[in-house]
């Protein structure tokens, strides 16, 4: 059994929406092991985005325990949390979130502003090769197709050698064919040893994962290995 790289125990999270308190996550407990490829699925409002924010250390939770790479993140302050997610998590977003004024290479090296990375340019070339964009270094995102942009974002996520890649609807802005190639890229990265978590509402996307976690109304519905 590989060691759990993420473990959540009884995580609760609620939001105040106006006067009404909305319980987004209820007593969530789950473990994700190193080398896993997990899809978190569920209808909108099921709490999957909240879960992803909490796993990604972007948001805080009300109660429970979250261990990330062995460390309890509950008692970290904002700066420690920022550094921790910079080192441990590679984010991939639905809308790519690239800086359009910067080149592909500059976008990819961006994390090196905040996290210590040895020789960031070389590293960036390496990860861009890995995602198949080794020849687009000097282009800007606006000169690229959607699929290529998402590859840049994935390369950026790989920069700091994170323990997990957290992808929030990574294919949501792509056509199904391009979406498939992106998912295949994730599969390839997973085969090379990366732990990958994909949040999606699309069952076709979830099929690429080794494991699917379904959320309904803020609770884990069932947990099936494929």
């Amino acid at each position: 059994m590989p060691k759990p790289i993420i473990s959540l125990k009884n995580i609760n999270k609620s939001y105040l929406s106006g006067e009404i308190e909305f319980q987004a996550l209820k007593e969530i407990s789950l473990e994700i092991s190193e080398g896993d490829f997990v899809a978190i699925v569920g209808p909108s409002g099921s709490g999957k985005s909240t879960l992803m924010n909490i796993i990604g250390c972007l948001d805080r939770f009300d109660s429970g325990e979250l261990r990330l790479d062995g460390k309890n993140v509950a008692d970290m302050d904002d700066d420690e949390l920022a550094l921790w997610r910079g080192q441990k998590i590679g984010f991939v977003f639905q809308s790519f979130n690239l800086l359009n004024k910067f080149t592909v290479l500059e976008n990819t090296t961006l994390p090196s502003l905040y996290v210590k990375i040895e020789n960031p340019e070389n590293k960036a070339r390496k990860v861009l090769d890995q995602v198949g964009l080794g020849d687009k270094l000097k282009n800007t995102p606006l000169q690229l197709s959607g699929g290529q942009r998402q590859r840049v974002a994935i390369a950026r996520a790989l920069m700091a050698d994170p323990v997990i890649i957290l992808a929030d609807e990574p294919t949501g802005n792509l056509d199904s064919k391009t979406g498939k190639t992106i998912m295949k890229l994730f599969q390839k990265l997973n085969n090379e040893g990366k732990t990958i978590i994909v949040i999606t509402h699309d069952p076709a996307v979830a099929k690429f994962a080794k494991k699917v976690i379904k959320l309904v109304d803020g609770k884990v519905h069932n947990e099936n290995a494929d």
Binding site: D79, Q87, R156
Partner: peptide, 13 residues
């Protein structure tokens, strides 16, 4: 959005 991204990839306040 850029600020959000920068924070996600490790930028401190």
């Amino acid at each position: 959005k850029e600020i959000g991204l920068r924070k996600a990839i490790g930028a401190k306040n």
